[in-house]
């Protein structure tokens, strides 16, 4: 440890405005994404999990024939086509809500947030970093899911621009809402060690009752009503609207895609999540 020399140059005028917040936010995105892909368990349970499940479901259920086929077995769509929207929806929930919920709770537990709290990093830059990491990893996840579906299972992706437009807004609204809700629920675990145990099981149940792994119409009506309160059911429904043939709309609970419902419920959750974040997020529990 030789002396830390270099005479202090006259401090450059320090600017603490919006430009700096955005610049540091961008630096955080790079840093966060790098850290994300270095944590093996996160990569598996939030990034690759839907990909693995799509593969398993497509292979395992293909023997049951196409979904929505005519009585003679013709027509309909492959199991892979049928599961793709659900797996994308699950991926949105995992990459957004589960990832950030567990991640931030662990950062609170292991001292990362306390350290950052002592630096001149704006809270907003930290959130930009988290949102950017979610967006980068989630887009990569969606691309991998679609490539797997198309190349391995011959799924035909829609060709109509309006279908892709639907996909785009449902995806963006879904991922932003999921990320914001992830930040909001990161306060729930009492410690970093319990983070995964507190956050993953409820979200897993949500995936089972929201028409991701099981067809929504298989659920009893009361369970459908419960699931309809939560955002995942609507993300999955929006994804089906974007990626399945329109003939499948009749299989939905209301007999239509109900995209207005998707927009309204997700919009409400987004606003609720933002308010909860604003009210509850602290770098550290001040008097623990």
């Amino acid at each position: 440890m030789s002396a830390a020399t270099s005479t202090a140059p006259a401090a450059r005028p320090a600017r603490f405005g919006l430009g700096r917040t955005l610049r540091l936010g961008a630096a955080r995105v790079v840093y966060e994404t790098r850290v994300y892909f270095r944590a093996g368990d996160t990569v598996f349970f939030t990034f690759l999990f839907p990909v693995v499940l799509l593969g398993i479901f497509s292979v395992a259920f293909q023997g049951m024939g196409n979904v929505g086929a005519n009585p003679d077995g013709s027509g309909g769509i492959s199991q892979a086509s049928y599961y793709l929207p659900g797996m994308i929806a699950a991926g949105i929930l995992l990459s957004g809500m589960q990832n950030l919920g567990v991640d931030i709770a662990m950062e609170r537990g292991d001292g990362t947030l306390k350290r950052l709290a002592g630096t001149p990093l704006p809270v907003m830059s930290y959130f930009i970093g988290k949102m950017g990491q979610v967006l980068v990893t989630s887009v990569a996840q969606v691309i991998i899911l679609m490539l797997l579906a198309k190349l391995a299972f011959g799924v035909e992706l829609p060709s109509e621009p309006e279908k892709w437009l639907t996909f785009l807004w449902v995806y963006l609204l879904g991922i932003v809402t999921a990320a914001v809700l992830g930040i909001a629920i990161s306060r729930l675990p009492r410690s970093g060690k319990s983070a995964a145990a507190v956050i993953i099981p409820p979200l897993l149940i949500l995936q089972f009752i929201s028409g991701v792994y099981l067809s929504f119409s298989l659920l009893p009506e009361w369970l459908q009503t419960v699931a309809s309160v939560f955002p995942l059911k609507w993300i999955a429904q929006g994804m089906r609207a974007a990626l399945l043939p329109d003939s499948f709309a009749s299989a939905e609970a209301g007999g239509t895609w109900d995209l207005a419902g998707v927009a309204i419920v997700l919009g409400i959750w987004l606003v609720v999540g933002l308010v909860v974040c604003r009210l509850t997020f602290r770098w550290i529990r001040k008097d623990s």
Binding site: M106, R115, G118
Partner: peptide, 12 residues
């Protein structure tokens, strides 16, 4: 600030 204890995952 050099805090008393740290336990960050250290993946960087």
């Amino acid at each position: 600030i050099v805090l008393q204890q740290t336990g960050e995952s250290g993946n960087v």
